[in-house]
Simulated assay, not measured.
Amino acid sequence: MKTLGTHNYYVYILTNRNKTVLYTGVTNNLKDRLYFHRNPNSKNSFTKKYNCFFLVYLEHFQNIQEAIKREKQIKGYSRTKKETLINNLNPEWHFFNDQFE
């Protein structure tokens, strides 16, 4: 069991190369999750269908319940509100994948 305060959970937003699609998720292993978005087991996966595997937004949590709550909150946001989140953190919409792969 991990020591309290050593857990790492991430709420993230992915987009496609043209930045027309947004996908919100939560994970405890961002490196592996980005790999599986790019190389899914299913051809029917949302991220594969829309080539949506470029990381543009990220929030860190140490508590899974807080991370899940935040993921659901962001998923309920309008496209405009999600774009505002991204713009505040990453105004150029740079792809952060290299930092985690």
Rank of each mutant, 00 (worst) to 15 (best):
H7A: 10
F53N: 05
N44Y: 09
E71C: 01
W93R: 09
G76A: 03
L30K: 02
L22D: 07
E66T: 15
F53V: 02
T3W: 15
N97W: 06
F100T: 02
Y77E: 07
N87K: 11
K19M: 09
D32I: 10
R17M: 15
Y35E: 00
Q62P: 03
C52T: 08
G25F: 01
K75M: 13
K49A: 08
T24M: 06
F61K: 00
N29V: 04
L14R: 03
F53S: 06
R33T: 01
N18S: 10
P40Y: 03
I13R: 00
F95M: 11
F36T: 14
D32G: 07
F100Q: 05
K82I: 07
T47Y: 07
T15C: 07
G76K: 01
T84F: 10
T3L: 14
F61V: 00
D98I: 09
E92T: 14
K49W: 09
Y50E: 03
Y35P: 01
I13D: 03
P91K: 08
N18V: 13
R79C: 09
Y12G: 03
T15N: 04
K82Y: 05
V56G: 08
T6C: 11
T6L: 11
I68M: 04
F54P: 03
T47A: 02
I74F: 08
R33P: 00
L22T: 08
F46P: 00
I74P: 02
T20L: 08
K43M: 12
F96W: 14
T3A: 15
E71I: 01
L55G: 01
F100V: 06
Y50M: 00
T6P: 03
R70E: 00
R79K: 12
N18T: 10
P91W: 10
K49Y: 13
N28H: 10
Q65W: 14
R17C: 12
E92Y: 14
I64N: 12
N8L: 13
N39M: 02
N90D: 05
K69H: 13
Y9F: 08
L4R: 09
V26G: 00
E71M: 01
W93V: 08
T6N: 12
R70M: 00
F53D: 10
I64F: 09
H94Q: 14
D98T: 14
K19L: 04
N16D: 13
N63A: 11
F100I: 02
T47F: 04
V21K: 15
K82G: 04
F54A: 11
M1S: 15
I64H: 13
G5Y: 06
N51Q: 15
